[in-house]
Simulated assay, not measured.
Amino acid sequence: MSAAPNRRLVAVVLLVPMVVALVLWAFAWPAARMTPRDLPVGVAGSAPAADQLQRQLEQRDGAFEIHRYDSETAARTAIEDRAVYGAVVATAKGPELLTASAAGPVVAQLLHEAVTASAPAGTAVPVTDVVAAPAADPRGSVLGASILPLAIAGMAAGSAVTLLRLRGGRAASALIGVAALVGVVATALTDSWLGVITGDWWSEVGALGLTVLAVGAPVAGLAALIGPAGIGLGALLMVLVGNPFSGVTSAPELLPQPVGAIGQLLPPGAGGSLLRSVAFFDGHAAGGAVLTLALWAVLGLTAVIIGGRRRAPAPDAPEAAAEGGPPPGGGRPPPKGGVPPPGGGGGG
């Protein structure tokens, strides 16, 4: 009789450490292996000085993806368009570094260290922050921390729709409504109040709301198709994998591969990239992230509608009787006292 409880005890003792190990792996391993991998960087200026700068950067095998530009102006434009994270410009006085702390303070610091290390000893490298992070969040910590709450909001929306047994069009409308309201509230807090994002207000609302919808709709869709287990699967995908793989606190190119690429295909990573684009870069390089989020949202809403049709509840016979309809066996409903009327019902 004690075999089953003992098995459950062993299962709990083994399962909890495995879950902890999985969580630590997902969150700690990418951070511990952070280093540039094909990080897009520009080199501007005329030869041979620019060629020498390029060779110095290429000595760090596989760290940088070099883009050449004819002038400092062209390099600045590339940074503003999010084509590169920064650029080294060959000038008559020596190398000059152009960065964009709004694209990632960690990357800007890494570029400064790399260029300073490759410069002649004692040479000061001037640094120009082309697209600076807002003064209210110079280290980008608030923006980096904003993606997890958005993922949790999406999870909460998908779970609530499931637990409240909303189906089909009602479930889809609830998910869209929640996402829109979260977008407005989150933008009011981060832009209007805290000032940590500084782009077009309604574009930020759209980015935040679409991120929430791209998380919540798949969670509700999985639950509609496979039952409550879909909520757990959605949490595993969106929070346990999507958040640490997003690269929003650093850059996708700093994470081990293919972690960085996988993260950008999931809503938290795509949402972080989209928010950064609309908040600081006038929407440049936002197309891929919008497409990714839209695909997740459409697939999730489609699953919600299909699952609602498959799992539509059958009519409740007691409720029909209470509303005055005939009982399941036909005939007239008995009076309140429970005694059948004379000559009625089913006598013989």
Rank of each mutant, 00 (worst) to 15 (best):
I79F: 07
A28M: 08
V106L: 12
P335I: 07
L163F: 10
A229C: 12
M238L: 10
E113Y: 08
R33C: 09
A321M: 14
A74T: 10
D129A: 08
A26F: 15
A121M: 09
G337N: 15
T292I: 12
A220I: 08
G324C: 11
P228Y: 14
V248L: 07
G94T: 03
A279N: 03
L210F: 12
G331M: 02
G338W: 13
A11T: 11
L110R: 08
M155E: 02
L110G: 03
V248W: 13
G283L: 08
L194S: 06
V127L: 00
V10L: 09
I66Y: 14
A172S: 15
W193F: 10
D137K: 09
R332M: 03
A117N: 11
F280W: 03
Q54K: 12
V259W: 14
A74C: 10
L39F: 04
G122K: 00
G195E: 11
L295I: 13
A279T: 10
T116S: 14
P256H: 14
M1R: 12
T35P: 00
T249G: 11
L15I: 04
G247H: 01
L57A: 14
H112C: 03
A294E: 08
A321F: 13
D51G: 08
H284F: 13
I231L: 08
A26L: 00
V125E: 05
S192G: 01
R55H: 14
L274T: 01
V12I: 15
P327R: 08
V41K: 00
L233Q: 05
S273D: 13
P267G: 02
V10W: 11
P315C: 09
G169P: 01
R55W: 04
A63K: 10
P218Q: 02
A251M: 04
A49T: 02
V196E: 01
A217H: 02
D70G: 15
L293S: 02
V10T: 12
S192E: 12
L291G: 07
G86C: 05
V107N: 11
V196H: 10
V278R: 02
G308E: 06
R309I: 07
G338D: 03
G347F: 14
G300V: 10
P36E: 02
P105F: 03
V130G: 02
G234F: 11
L194D: 09
L15M: 03
P40I: 06
A220N: 09
I231M: 06
V115P: 07
V106D: 13
L299W: 15
V115D: 01
I231F: 02
W296S: 13
A114N: 00
V290D: 09
A297G: 12
A108T: 15
A314L: 07
G62V: 15
I231G: 05
P95R: 09
G330Q: 04
A303F: 15
G331R: 09
L148D: 04
D200W: 00
G144R: 07
V131M: 01
A171Q: 00
V182G: 00
P252L: 08
G45I: 06
I147M: 13
A50I: 14
P126L: 09
P228R: 15
H112R: 14
T198L: 12
P326A: 15
F64D: 00
A92F: 05
N6W: 10
G288W: 01
